[in-house]
Structure formats: structure tokens, C-alpha cells
């Protein structure tokens, strides 16, 4: 089984699905000859040609708008937005059109498409190459939102997303694009949408996270373990629809919850996770559910390690929650 980083795993998923299904096309700014700003689509243009891999004008609304048309016709477009920070010109197309197409047409039309975009900080990208806008899209009915944390899940989730009948926003944590390598099967497999994964079992406190922050939460769990606190860590993998059962089952066991995400705290997805736990496991809680998140400021260039909820900020909250 070859070892791959996340860039290679996503590239492998795209190439293998394009070989298997000729309806799959890739489009975006510099995804063709250049192979993408992070090289995720490298080699696809050479293998599949300009009819399957399209370099588009720099206009995100047009990238998503034309992809919607392709999906309406019955293709499986996989548009790339270079950074999630630049997705907002396409916000209208995603929110007003793709997300609502099936519902507003009474089920006549659908938009099976996967919008791939790198998210998150930690690469010194400043305020326009670091954001995590997942909550804005989860708040829109009709979109699925996926965020893998490792190469294996990235490939399996992307294959499942391309084969899904609904529009999927596929968020790629660029901080761990190349930082993590692991064995990834060359063949076909899916990681099902809507299923979280318990990546560390524990009995004292439940940590919920996703994307690049899973590794920080894992490091914080190790710190807590050294202090005698046994943390369970859940990697959501699919943010929406949320696998609330896995979270609730864990909290019923531990009685304590800490949610970790990079996005700002106010109305962040952590608030939804906390409230769902309040609704479904309130009487099992032995401490106030806590959030460790980005601050309610824009994402800074110079102080990104102070903005991000890294292990040194997560560990104290895990200990406080466990010892409440």
C-alpha cells in the first residue's frame, strides 16, 4: 500500500474517479496546465485533456455557476476554489442556486457537484488565505459539508462525495496537506458521508474536532493523559449532516464536552454541537460544555499561532472541564 500525503490522496481520488466515470470533470483557476495552486490536480490535464480539466477565468461565481449547469445536464463537476477565502463571489451561486435546486424544482433538478477548497490557517497566509467558513454553508439548507483530517479519509470521503447526489462542499485543511503521510489504498474505497470517527478512546472527557485541529486535540489529549485525564477524541469528518449519535454516545460516557475549531467562536459550528448535546444528553453533563476556537477577529498574519486553537490552548480547557 503506497504512502501518500493528503495532496496525493486527493489527486489519486480525482484521477481514479475520472477514469471510472467519464461524467466527472474538474474546473477552476489554474487547475489544468498548472495543476492547481497546491498541485492537487497535477497531471490530470495531461491524462484527461481540456475536455475534462478546464482552466477557467478568475471569477468564482462563474466557476460555480457553470459547474451548476454541468451538473444540471447530468455531469459530475468538481470545481476548485483556490482558497476558501475567495469563495464569497460564488456565495450566491452556492447558497441561492446549488443548495436550493432540488427543493425549489420539486425534485426535478439536482446539483451533484463537489466544491473543493483549501481551508484553515497555519501556513502564514494572513486574513485572505486562512479562513474556515464552514458554518456559513452548514447554515444553508441543502449543502453537505465535509472536512477530512488525513490522507486515507480524504480519498475515501472525496470518492463518496463525488458519487453523492447532492452538492458537497469539500474543505481541505491546507495546514496538513503535506504534513501527514500514511498508507492509502490504491484501489477504490469510500469513507461514508455522515459518519464521525473516534480516533482516541477515553473515559473522562469528549473532545470534538475536525480538519487540522484534530492533531492539536490529539496532542492536548496526550498532555491531559500525563495529568491523569483520559480524553476521548472524535474526528467529525463530515460536518453536515452531523453524526450527532456518535457525539452523544461519547458524552453520555464521559459527561464532559470540549469542541475545538479554527473558525471564530460566535455562531461557529461548535455552538451547534454544544447545543445538540445539551438537547440530547443534558442530564449526563457534569461540566459546562466548552469551546476552544479562533478568536472573534479576522485571521492574523503575524500571530496565527495565537489565533489558532493549538494544543497549548486546548489542554488547559480539557483539564478544567474534566476537573470541574
Amino acid at each position: 500500500m503506497p504512502e501518500m500525503n493528503m495532496v496525493q490522496a486527493i489527486n489519486d481520488a480525482l484521477a481514479s474517479e475520472m477514469r471510472r466515470d467519464d461524467r466527472v470533470v474538474v474546473l477552476g483557476e489554474d487547475v489544468g496546465k498548472v495543476g492547481g495552486v497546491f498541485r492537487v490536480t497535477a497531471g490530470l490535464y495531461d491524462e484527461f485533456g481540456e475536455d475534462r480539466v478546464l482552466d477557467t477565468p478568475l471569477a468564482e461565481g462563474g466557476i460555480i455557476g457553470t459547474a451548476i449547469g454541468m451538473a444540471l445536464y447530468g455531469m459530475r463537476p468538481v470545481p476548485e476554489i483556490q482558497f476558501a477565502d475567495f469563495i464569497f463571489p460564488a456565495f450566491d451561486q452556492i447558497v441561492s442556486e446549488a443548495a436550493k435546486m432540488r427543493w425549489r424544482s420539486g425534485g426535478e433538478y439536482s446539483c451533484p457537484m463537489v466544491i473543493r477548497t483549501p481551508v484553515g490557517g497555519g501556513i502564514r497566509g494572513g486574513l485572505y488565505h486562512s479562513q474556515s467558513p464552514e458554518a456559513l454553508f452548514i447554515h444553508t439548507a441543502g449543502l453537505k459539508v465535509v472536512c477530512p483530517s488525513n490522507p486515507y479519509d480524504a480519498k475515501g470521503l472525496l470518492l463518496a462525495s463525488i458519487r453523492d447526489e447532492d452538492p458537497v462542499l469539500f474543505l481541505e485543511p491546507k495546514r496538513v496537506y503535506r504534513a501527514v503521510k500514511m498508507d492509502v489504498p490504491e484501489g477504490d474505497y469510500e469513507v461514508p458521508l455522515g459518519k464521525a470517527k473516534v480516533v482516541r478512546e477515553g473515559s473522562d472527557v469528549t473532545i470534538v474536532s475536525w480538519g487540522a485541529m484534530v492533531y492539536e486535540a490529539l496532542a492536548a489529549a496526550d498532555t491531559a493523559a500525563a495529568e491523569g485525564v483520559d480524553a476521548e477524541l472524535i474526528d467529525l469528518r463530515t460536518l453536515w449532516p452531523l453524526d450527532v449519535d456518535t457525539i452523544v454516545e461519547s458524552v453520555k460516557k464521559t459527561g464532559r464536552l470540549v469542541v475545538v475549531h479554527e473558525a471564530p467562536k460566535a455562531c461557529g459550528f461548535g455552538a451547534e454541537v454544544v447545543q445538540l448535546v445539551n438537547e440530547k444528553a443534558f442530564l449526563h453533563l457534569e461540566a459546562p460544555p466548552a469551546r476552544v476556537t479562533g478568536w472573534d477577529t479576522p485571521f492574523p498574519y503575524s500571530m496565527e499561532n495565537e489565533y489558532l486553537p493549538l494544543a497549548h490552548r486546548i489542554a488547559p480547557t480539557v483539564l478544567e472541564t474534566a476537573r470541574f
Binding site: 461565481g61 462563474g62 460555480i64 455557476g65 457553470t66 459547474a67 451548476i68 449547469g69 454541468m70 451538473a71 444540471l72 445536464y73 447530468g74 455531469m75 463537476p77 450566491d92 451561486q93 441561492s96 442556486e97 436550493k100 435546486m101 425549489r104 424544482s105 420539486g106 426535478e108 433538478y109
Partner: peptide, 29 residues
């Protein structure tokens, strides 16, 4: 609001001009 797939009429929305790129996408596809 209107949608008539069998008649090859697209689903209509209210935002201005959003359907123009859709028409291009269908034509290209």
C-alpha cells in the same frame, strides 16, 4: 417560480443573472 425538466425549461430563481452561467454550463456539458 417555474421548473419543467421534461420541457427542457430550467428551474427559475429570483436573483439577477445567476442563470446565465448555468446556461453556459449546460451548453458546454
Amino acid at each position: 417560480g417555474l421548473s419543467a425538466r421534461g420541457l427542457r425549461i430550467a428551474s427559475v430563481s429570483a436573483p439577477a443573472g445567476t442563470h446565465l452561467p448555468h446556461a453556459v454550463g449546460v451548453a458546454w456539458a
